[in-house]
Each structure stands twice: as structure tokens, then as C-alpha cells.
Design a protein around this nucleic acid. Sequence first.
DNA 1: AGTATTCCCGACTGGGGCAGTCAAGATTGG
DNA 2: CCAATCTTGACTGCCCCAGTCGGGAATACT
Lengths: 164, 164
Amino acid sequence: MKLSTKGRYAVMAMVDLASNSKGQPIALADIAERQEISLSYLEQLFAKLRKGGLVKSVRGPGGGYLLAHPIEESRVSDIIVAVDEPIRATRCAPGSPAGCRSNRSRCLTHDLWEELGNQIHLYLSSVSLADICNKQVLGTSGVISHTSAPGHAADPASRASAAE
Amino acid sequence: MKLSTKGRYAVMAMVDLASNSKGQPIALADIAERQEISLSYLEQLFAKLRKGGLVKSVRGPGGGYLLAHPIEESRVSDIIVAVDEPIRATRCAPGSPAGCRSNRSRCLTHDLWEELGNQIHLYLSSVSLADICNKQVLGTSGVISHTSAPGHAADPASRASAAE
DNA sequence: AGTATTCCCGACTGGGGCAGTCAAGATTGG
DNA sequence: CCAATCTTGACTGCCCCAGTCGGGAATACT
């Protein structure tokens, strides 16, 4: 799960598509103008979104793109996965952490990144395009809780820099 | 909150430092060998960690680096923040989303990324070096819950690709 | 048929940051 | 003094993002 501006552009465009389409296709040129994204760049992104099965295309005059799924079932995580190429998570071989186990105690951090990836994916899976259109992204009500983390759970803002 | 290999290296090194130091300083050369990271590159990282106040340095023979804080109070989020330079979150001006409000409906996604950043930061703040050393990173017991997201909370693995 | 509109595809480019190297200088223990 | 170690700065190669360009294919409209 990579988080770059690329994925953000894709989500912006998909939100625009979701909120402006009333059943008829939307031309990329419209989205490009509204979201102030280069048209040619958008074409690249939507090529991937189409291959990922997230949008359907209609060619010819009056054509454009349509959501392939109902707005409530279009998850943000799917968009990002479709657009961003996967990143090699640690330095371990994908799948089996064979490279980790070779010299033990090396990838103590492996579990951490894996779990973090799960957390991010889980959160983004819980947000649909409908949620964003309805502004239901939920504010700063802390949601993550470390099930077994006593002790340093206190003083949450001592050295905590502003979340960027 | 940026997530690159750079931050991972830093965390790996800090975990190594935490688990191998018994009060006496650890030379970077040792960490470099154990973690298979270039020594010169580690030097750069630890320069930032030192400026961030996460480690203390001891010069001269027998010198090296020490954790500046107790192992339980060294949070992963602090390490990553210290090492990775901040990323411009959206395309909005940092702080006030003035650029967003200019043409409305553009940054509907703004809240999403901001909230996601909070989630990540919150999770990484909840993990200390002590947790990692004790392998208490907690497995795949889903922790995030969308407080107000009924409906599409079901079928969690239908199109969910393998978490990478 | 012809034309305009739109998607589709591949190649190309400039820049930024990561990963890593190299070469010095500063500081301290033996 | 000398060796070990941190400290600093400049330098490099490379990959990928963001964006551009030129053309080609499908379709609606006249």
C-alpha cells in the first residue's frame, strides 16, 4: 500500500466522477478542468483504473467514464491499489519472509510494517466514495487502539509533533 | 507522515540499538554490519536522529550511540518523523486549506488524507521500541474500526487484495 | 461518407528524492 | 601521539513521479 500524490489524484478524480455522473458518462476533459489535473496524466490514471475494473469507458462523442460499481461499494483502497504499483514492503522476498529468517533478529520490524499496512488498508477499505461525497470521513475521533499497550499510553501529546 | 524505506532503515537501526545496548554506547559500524545497511548511509540517518533528540552520541574510542529516552518511551512515529522530511500532504497550503476553499468541491478528499495521516500517526505512536523488541506488535487482530460506517462493513475480503 | 468527439496507447522528458559513496575534520580514550 | 569513532559536507547513479506529445481507434451525428 503506497501513498503518493498519484493515488490522491486518482481518488480526487473518482470522487469527481462519482459526484458529477448521473448515469451518463463523464469526459476526462471535464474532470481535468474541475480538478485542475493534466488531461494526459488523467488518461494514464484512468487506463489503470479501467484495467483494475473500477470504471467503465464509453467511446465516441458524448462518451466518457462511468463507475463500474455502485458508489457505496467503491472503496478508496481499491483505487489506490489499482493506480500505485506495489512497493516492496521490506526487503524480504514477497510473500514468505525467507530473507528475514536467514539471519534472525534482523526483521524484528517485519511484523510492524506488515501490521501497519494492514491498518492502512483496513481504514481505506472502510471508506467508500459515497462516504467522501457525503463528507462522512469522520473527524479526529481517535479510532485506532492498541489492544495491549499499557504504560506509555499516557501523555499522548508530550513529544507528539503536529500530525502532518 | 511519509513511509519510505528510509524510515524503515531508521527503525531497524533503532531497534538494533535498543536491543543490543546495555547502557554502553554502540558503534554505528556494528549496527551497519548486523542490519546490513551501508555505514555511511547510517551516519546520515543518525545525524537526523540526533538532531531530533532521539539518540545521544559518545565520541572517541568505545564511543557510539545511546538511546536518549527509555526504551518504552521511544515511539516509532518519532523516528520516522525525524528521518523523513515532511511531505506536502495534499496540494493545499500547509496548515490552512486556503487553496482548497477557493474552488469548492475540489478538496473533498482533504479530510480523508488528513484523517488517514492521523490514523497512521496514532498507530505508530502506540508502538514503542520495547514493543518491537518483545515482539508485541500484535498480529492480525483488526484494530481499526470505522465508528460510523454501516452498510459496507460486511464482505471484508471480497475484492480485498492481499495486503502488501 | 465524413467529421468531430472521445477514449486509448506508447514513447519521451525533467526533476526530486532515495540509497549510497567519498573525503575530510573534530573529539576523545589509551 | 595515535587510533577509534563520531560529524559534516559534497558528490553520484538511479528510479519513479508528474507531465507532455503524437498518433490511433471507436463511435455519434449530420
